[in-house]
């Protein structure tokens, strides 16, 4: 008997499942694959893979350095393939940078000088990190990686269901 092997997906190797319809519309299942979506998207394009009222799961391909993002609520990121660094800084005056009336990630035009460094996290496959309220964050990936975000729909959320879902 061989040891059981756990099958994870990656940008280079995933086997998408599917839907066998008995009496339904396949679009009701909003079925996609995060690796396929990430492969077909621009770096750091935050594509909505799941949506439940205002809440979303976004998927992105991390590649090179991202811009800075901030948010008026916590977010979480999970690395699903590859390796990515998350840099965090404390915003001294977030109200001047983040629209407090809006949910979801907001991309900062620029990060003011002299913000306090909070630290850095290096994520590999399966690692989850907190993106805390009041912080700004940026990603760096030396080679393509895949991340998902637990967040709320915002200005950076890209919906392109017809491109990513089975129909």
């Amino acid at each position: 008997m061989t040891e059981k092997r756990t099958e994870f997906g990656s940008l280079d190797n995933f086997q998408k499942g599917g839907i066998d319809i008995v009496d339904d519309d396949p679009r009701n299942y909003v079925f996609s694959n995060i690796y396929e979506t990430a492969a077909r998207s621009e770096p750091y394009e935050r594509v909505c893979a799941a949506k439940n009222f205002e809440y979303v799961i976004e998927v992105a391909r991390a590649e090179g350095q991202s811009g800075w993002y901030a948010c008026r609520h916590d977010e979480f990121v999970v690395c699903m393939d590859g390796e990515v660094d998350v840099h965090l800084v404390k915003l001294d005056a977030p109200e001047g940078l983040v629209d407090s009336s809006l949910d979801g990630a907001q991309r900062l035009e620029e990060l003011p000088d002299n913000q306090r460094k909070m630290g850095r996290v290096r994520l590999k496959r399966g690692h989850m990190a907190l993106l805390p309220v009041g912080a700004a964050y940026r990603f760096e990936a030396s080679s393509p990686a895949v991340v998902i975000f637990q967040t709320i729909q915002g200005a950076e959320t890209v919906e392109k269901w017809a491109e990513i879902c089975l129909a």
């Binding site: 998408k16 066998d20 008995v22 339904d24 396949p26 799941a50």
Partner: peptide, 18 residues
Amino acid sequence: GAPRAVVTMRAGDVACMP
């Protein structure tokens, strides 16, 4: 309880249950 579909999900797949 009438059957509607069979959904096969593999690593990385996302699907909603209506």
